[in-house]
Structure formats: C-alpha cells, structure tokens
Design a binder for these strands. Structure first.
Lengths: 152, 152
DNA sequence: GGCTATTTAGTTGCGCACAACTTAATCGCT
DNA sequence: AGCGATTAAGTTGTGCGCAACTAAATAGCC
C-alpha cells in the first residue's frame, strides 16, 4: 500500500470537522454568555434546570454526559454565583438535589435571545439543521454503543 | 409568549448535539490513541505533520484552529515524547519549525487502523458521512465568519 | 539609522473533560 | 442484624481551550 495514502488528510477527517465545528459554536456562545456570567457548560446545566426546575447531580450528569468529577466543581461555582442551591436529599443522603435560586430562575429571561443569534450565525436552513441534528444524534448513539461494548 | 417555550429543550439544541457528538468521538479515540501514547489533540498535530512533514507553529495553529497558548505546551510534550523536534527558523528567528523525528514518522504506521475503526463505530453510510462533513464545514465557516464580524 | 508597530512563541491563570481514587450512605444477601 | 457490594458525590492530577499578557525579532516608516 502507498505510504502517503494511509492516513487521511486532516480536513477530510470527519472527527476533525466535528471537533472544529463544536469549538467554533462554543466560541460563538462565549461573548454572549459572558453577559450572563456563564460558561458554555454552565449554560447547559442551567438549560436542564430551567427545563426541569430541579435535578439530581446524577440526572444532570446523564443528561449532559459528564461525570461528577466535572459536575461537582462546576455546580460549586454556580452556587457561589448565587444561581443554584445544593442540598442533600432527605430520603437518600448520598444524592444531592440541585435547585434554581430566584436569581437563577430570572436569568432564563436573559438567555432567550441566545438560540436565535446562534441559529442565524450557523447559516443553515431549517431542513439542514433538522437533518444535522438527527445525524449527530445517530452518530453519538452509535459511537457510545460501540464504546460501551469495548469495556462491557 | 409562553414562558416555558422560551428556551429550547436541551436535546433539541443543535449546539448540544454537536458538543456531545464531538466528545463521544474523542472518547472513542482515547483508548485507541493510548496505544500510541497520544492524546486526541496531539494526534491532530501528528496528522498535520504526517501530511506535510514539516510545519511552523503558526501553520499548525491555523490548520487546527488553536493558538500558541494551546500549541506550545502540547508541542513541548510531543518533543519530550521524542516524536517531534522544534527549532528556530534561520531566516526568521521569531518562528519555530516543527519536524518529525524518526520515531514520530514511524508512528504513522501504527495510526493506519484508526480511521477505519472510528468510521465503523460511527454507524453512518458513506453518503451520510460525506454530507455530514460538508454541512459541518459549512457551519464552521459560517460561524467563524460571524464571529470575525463581532470584533472586526 | 533609529524608532514605533506588528508579528511570533511562549507563559500564566482559569474552567472543563476525564481517569483514578476517596468517602459516605444504601442495598442486598445470608 | 451483620456485612460485603454497590452507588453517589466529591477530590486530585493531567491535558486541552482560551484570554490576557510577556519577550523577542522583524517590518515599516520617518
């Protein structure tokens, strides 16, 4: 086999396209989220809380695909910022309930404009966006199933 | 407007689908790259070097969309691992040339199998992959143009 | 030639992602 | 009831991403 054909070019690699796109979008959010005093991963946590009002650390971890090693310090920062409260659950002292504070709830109103701005910046039509999201979910599921089989 | 319709659900957000997919794929690469002693971002640098043999730090930064703040320590680790050499360029002492060592070049052969494994795990057909890559490039370009206009 | 502005790498500091580990509570089995 | 296994959250350490800054070399202008 030809040695120079063995490894694909960087910009042909789907993994890099994904990596680059994800970072570009996060970078687009950054200045917008700065106004709310949030980082992008913190914003994802707030989205989940705005949606459900009340979440356990484990639930948040499953929804966002992160473990407690990432979540614990992040939630501590959100708590210090006054957006969130953490309390041990009464019926199971192991688990922790994360709740929105008044201020955390109010922040939702300031986040309203974000999806619109980001959606516009992406420059894709509704059909393209829909298909992209579907394909990405499919890819993520497939990859995660594959990963689960590696150590399972 | 209805308050509960204001901010989309987490799993409807394209940005999160992107974020999750990118991390899933990186996580899939991790155990494979462990065998080569590389992290994923280091692998991207090696891909660029395998492709061009020889790159300036600035060129690498442009190709991978990262600045010297990320690249410098990463290259230092690759150098310490014996995969790469760094030397000031003669004609312009500001810039640094990054070169593959023998060992770095040999590593290419061990990376041959990666794209196949990852491609299979993604569970997408060739047409889907092609379209996904195109859409992602389009999205990245559009977002980065938008970002350039924010501070430009 | 001399001086400022720009360019290029590198450093520092913070937050996230993740692996490996710790601590504490609960579960489940006998 | 007692006790080992499991589960939940948190801690520690490493590497990446990025902003802000520094140091040194070159470019460009007078």
């Amino acid at each position: 086999m030809a040695a120079d054909a063995v490894v694909p070019r960087l910009d042909e690699q789907l993994c890099f396209a994904l990596h680059a796109a994800s970072r570009a979008v996060t970078g687009l959010y950054r200045p917008l989220l700065d106004d709310l005093g949030l980082t992008y991963p913190q914003y994802l946590v707030m989205l989940s809380l705005w949606e459900h009002g009340d979440r356990g650390v484990k639930e948040l971890g499953q929804a966002l695909c992160v473990d407690s090693g990432t979540l614990s310090p992040l939630l501590k920062r959100l708590e210090k910022a006054g957006l969130v409260r953490r309390e041990r659950r009464g019926d199971d002292e192991r688990s922790v309930r994360v709740t929105l504070t008044e201020e955390g709830d109010r922040l939702r109103a300031k986040a309203v404009s974000l999806p619109g701005v980001v959606g516009e910046a992406m420059g894709l039509g509704p059909a393209q966006i829909d298909e992209l999201r579907t394909t990405l979910h499919q890819l993520t599921d497939s990859v995660n199933r594959y990963r689960a089989n590696l150590d399972g």
